[in-house]
């Protein structure tokens, strides 16, 4: 009887889902991630109108329309600045950013680093399937270098990007990895990520059954992290040195203060500003 004392949420997970039907392929991990997100929102007892889901371009970036929250489906790779602008202007909103490995780590790679540094109170969920789906199966930054595809026959030959290592080095305040096959476990990670102040990064391994059917095997590859979450950068870094990419759970919980300049507190009028120019 661990959690019977929890408050019954005002809204069920389904209340956060819109009536728009996803375009994803049946079997896609993103369906389950959508379920994890709505479960986390429900458990956090958030009113849907006080939540915004922001995205860029790609399969996973279709998520905002599938939620019944405020949303913005922006341009490719720019979901993080779009979300940061919203959160800084409207600190009262809970802002979740949804992205994929192409949108988030390739075209949006620079924003990823700087969002980690800036530490605006956002939760960044990257559904990683190591492939571009919307353009029919090209290598992404996290794709294995020898994965054969039409654009780079025989494989890209490029070492995969290591999102958790980058996040840690760039200063993300919360870092975790989940797996779409564990909807409830991922919901728990997301709840914690949203609650954690500052920039929270959650990589979710989310198989692409169309272009990477081999990823169905991931359910046998993932395993719980054997080490507890840490607030120590050195320990987290050492853990990542031996990471096989399939450890799931929370890696790092930082204590940096979130970036939120004050807004709405005027101490002067426009006429005061104009006075500085008057002779």
């Amino acid at each position: 009887m661990t959690a019977e004392t929890a408050i019954t949420p005002k809204h069920t997970p389904r209340d956060y889902k819109s009536d728009i039907k996803p375009v994803w392929c049946p079997g896609c991990g993103d369906y389950s991630v959508l379920g994890s997100i709505t479960k986390a929102f429900s458990e956090l007892n958030l009113d849907p109108e006080n939540v915004a889901v922001i995205s860029g371009i790609g399969c996973s970036s279709r998520i905002p329309a599938y939620t019944d929250c405020y949303g913005f489906h922006g341009v490719h790779g720019r979901s993080l600045p779009l979300a940061a602008g919203l959160k800084v202007a409207r600190p009262d909103m809970t802002v979740l950013v949804a992205s994929g490995d192409g949108d988030g780590f390739s075209i949006g790679g620079n924003h990823f680093m700087h969002a980690c540094r800036r530490n605006v109170d956002l939760t960044y969920v990257v559904m990683d399937n190591r492939v571009y789906g919307m353009t029919k199966g090209q290598a992404s930054p996290t794709t294995e270098p020898d994965w054969d595809n039409a654009l780079t026959p025989g494989g890209s030959g490029i070492s995969p990007f290591r999102p958790l290592v980058i996040a840690l080095a760039a200063g993300a305040n919360f870092i975790a990895r989940g797996f779409s096959g564990d909807q409830n476990g991922t919901a728990k990670l997301l709840k914690e990520a949203i609650e954690h102040p500052g920039f929270s990064f959650v990589q979710i391994l989310s198989p692409c059954v169309t272009f990477r059917p081999d990823q169905k095997e991931w359910k046998d590859d993932v395993h719980d992290a054997t080490v507890d979450p840490t607030d120590d950068l050195g320990r987290a870094a050492r853990r990542l040195m031996t990471d096989d990419g399939f450890n799931v759970g929370v890696l790092y919980r930082g204590e940096r203060e979130a970036f939120q300049p004050p807004i709405g507190n005027a101490s002067a009028t426009v006429a005061d500003l104009e006075g500085k120019f008057a002779l």
């Binding site: 959690a3 929890a6 079997g27 909807q183 409830n184």
Partner: peptide, 29 residues
Amino acid sequence: IPHIAPWEYKWEGGQSPEAVVDMEAHYMM
């Protein structure tokens, strides 16, 4: 009926036993 958070149920492997494995779904199934 008490409220239990989705991850606090006593499911084997974390998911409800009656949940189908949706990764097995296919558009031509």
